[in-house]
């Protein structure tokens, strides 16, 4: 049984035109110890999927409208808040895009990490301090004793994200959701942080949901990939096959838009996908990528293509089969 099995998830938000689905019928699974990369442009529903799993959709503005999220056999949809709270930070952890805004400016790093233990009934005190120090060493923070007493604004972006990771790993969760963990960091720091996550997930046997808009990151770190567009998964499969033989025109477009060095084609113009990601109030019927697609057919505007197998474990949702 998969550690996490999301099935037909639909999450909707209130808009002026009525409820609209930011995630619409998404299904995927994450096995224990596996890295699932979720790729897509901003607004494709990646973060909303993650927040739905955490139960962090603000009930004032949105809700999970359907589907199930099975975590270790337990459906998280409709779970009582107290039960969700017992899972959060302990068995499922999440790290966010911008570590400066994700950390509370009023409390020290040590306080904010130690708080995870307090939240789960392990109390504060010298023992907790020792555990926090261990965590800081685990994420290779130099001078952990000093960092413990620092406020978020007093340390660098890379150190902050390491502190966030330490916080997320307090209880060695089964699942780590990393939502664009390096987008706000310098390129050199990005690699350090990603390598750290990769090393830790091997050592601690974590399953990771790595959410990113950067298909290059997915290529390097993910075992399997799910490509999202307009609140749906348009293609999913093992990283090697999906990246080498993409089936969906959107995936093909994403890969073509990655700049390449040293291929002798450096003078070639960088290719882009025409148009922009639709907002949730302007989603079209049928295939949502159709308005931007080069292989659009009459059928695309009428009927949404289902996810269908193209190879072993490799599915795509597209009427066009020309890529194969």
């Amino acid at each position: 049984m998969a550690l996490l099995a999301v099935s037909n998830l639909a999450t909707e938000f209130k808009t002026q035109a009525g409820p609209r689905r930011a995630v619409d019928g998404v299904s995927f699974a994450v096995e224990r110890g596996e890295v699932l990369g979720i790729v897509g442009e901003s607004g494709s529903g990646k973060s909303v999927t993650a927040l739905s799993i955490m139960g962090l959709i603000d009930p004032q503005v949105g809700r999970i409208a359907g589907g199930s999220i099975s975590f270790d056999g337990q459906d998280l949809v409709g779970l009582r808040l107290a039960e969700l709270q017992a899972l959060r930070g302990r068995r499922i952890s999440m790290i966010f895009q911008e570590p400066l805004s994700a950390l509370n400016p009023c409390y020290t790093i040590g306080d904010q990490i130690g708080e995870v233990f307090v939240a789960h009934g392990d109390g504060a005190g010298p023992a907790t301090r020792g555990r926090v120090l261990e965590l800081l060493k685990l994420v290779h923070i130099p001078d952990p004793e000093g960092i413990l007493r620092r406020y978020p604004h007093e340390i660098s972006g890379g150190m902050r994200q390491r502190a966030m990771i330490a916080m997320a790993l307090a209880y060695t969760p089964d699942l780590l959701i990393a939502d664009e963990p390096t987008t706000a960091l310098d390129v050199t720091i990005q690699a350090q942080v990603l390598n750290l996550i990769d090393r830790l997930r091997r050592e601690l046997k974590l399953a990771v949901m790595l959410i990113t808009h950067d298909i290059g990151i997915v290529a390097q770190y993910a075992d399997r990939v799910a490509v999202m567009y307009g609140g749906r998964i348009v293609e999913t499969g093992p990283a090697e096959t999906l990246l080498i033989a993409p089936q969906h025109p959107y995936t093909i477009g994403l890969l073509a838009s990655v700049p390449r060095l040293g291929t002798g084609r450096s003078r070639e113009r960088l290719r882009e996908i025409p148009g922009t990601v639709p907002s949730i109030t302007e989603l079209v019927p049928g295939c949502r990528f159709a308005p931007r697609c080069a292989h659009r057919m009459a059928r695309c505007g009428e009927q949404a293509p289902p996810l269908e197998a193209r190879a072993a474990g490799h599915d795509a949702a597209c009427w066009w089969t020309g890529a194969a």
Binding site: A82, Q85, S101, L103, M167
Partner: peptide
């Protein structure tokens, strides 16, 4: 609406905290 409030919830803290 700030990110650190979301982080606090993601840590498993109870609402009053």
């Amino acid at each position: 609406g700030r990110d650190y409030v979301r982080t606090a919830r993601a840590k498993g803290l109870r609402e009053p905290v």
